[in-house]
Amino acid sequence: MSNGVTGTTASAKAEAVGTQRIKNIKEKIKDPFFWSDWLVVIAFIAVVAFFGVLAPESFLTTYNLNNILVAASIPAIIAVGQTFTVATAGIDLSVSSTMTFGAVVFGLGFTNGWPIWQCAVFSTLAGVLVGFINGFIIAKRKINDFIVTLGMLSVAAGAALVLSDGKPRQIISGPLATLAIGEVAHVPYLMFIALAIVLVAHFVLFNTRFGTHVLATGGDPDAARAMGISIVKIKIAVYSISGALAGFAAMLTIARIGAAEPAANTSILLNSVAAVVLGGVSLFGGRGTILGPFIATLLLQSLTNGLTVIGVAAYYQYLSIGLVVILSAALVRTDK
């Protein structure tokens, strides 16, 4: 081969590599999974930048950012549990009343003079119980997740009302108040708890056999079964995780509002589902991320906080938050 030919080949090669790179980027942009992974981060940065520019003196203060972290802690924990159920192609619609049920159990223990840690253990166990029943019925009787947990939404809410006789129980406790308002380096204790749960969940989902089985169950249940994975056990496990986190979060709620309320707070359910979808977890199962829903929770809380801080009227807030959820969901559509 002559030098001239080598020269042209080299430049052609370089050109080919160049076009390949551009093609790669183009393909990446076209790939919905790329977007579902990164859109939530981009959207989060955009929201913070938007309010930061609009109201730098009130939105970007340590006080206010601290507020956002406090507000995001409890929804983030619930979203982690929801991610596990959605990763198996299920959904837990009962989280909000499971949390209420846990709160009422906590309240009963507290009124009976139990120490805080014991109340917390029992409220978490109450959540596990609800989750176990959900998972058991879904897996054993092969009933749609949606129907079972929708039924449980009502059952757990009713159980909470029965147990508490419909009355809120005031819980005034020094340690709980510290938990709710304390902070280290402007990061609230509540956020440390949420972060710890997020990191553990991330490890479990991506670095353990159990996590792989969860994703396999959601991705292709028949193949998973053929590989010897017990769908029943996995389903029971993910709903128990969701229930446990809801029961545990009940304690944090009590710490924040100073009472065990028997009325279910359905916003927490909507928030968790929105965060999971925005975070890029496929509703069809098999594809999950823990960090995505976590960032999505921060995004949703920043949005609510920002709109409140800049004084957007309440009516428009409902509208804008709903629109952001639908828009982002449309952008991160990850159907198979």
Partner: peptide, 14 residues
């Protein structure tokens, strides 16, 4: 939202 006691607390905090 209806019964959203924490959401309301978040608003006041903001």
């Amino acid at each position: 939202g209806l019964n959203d006691d924490i959401g309301q607390a978040n608003k006041l905090d903001s």
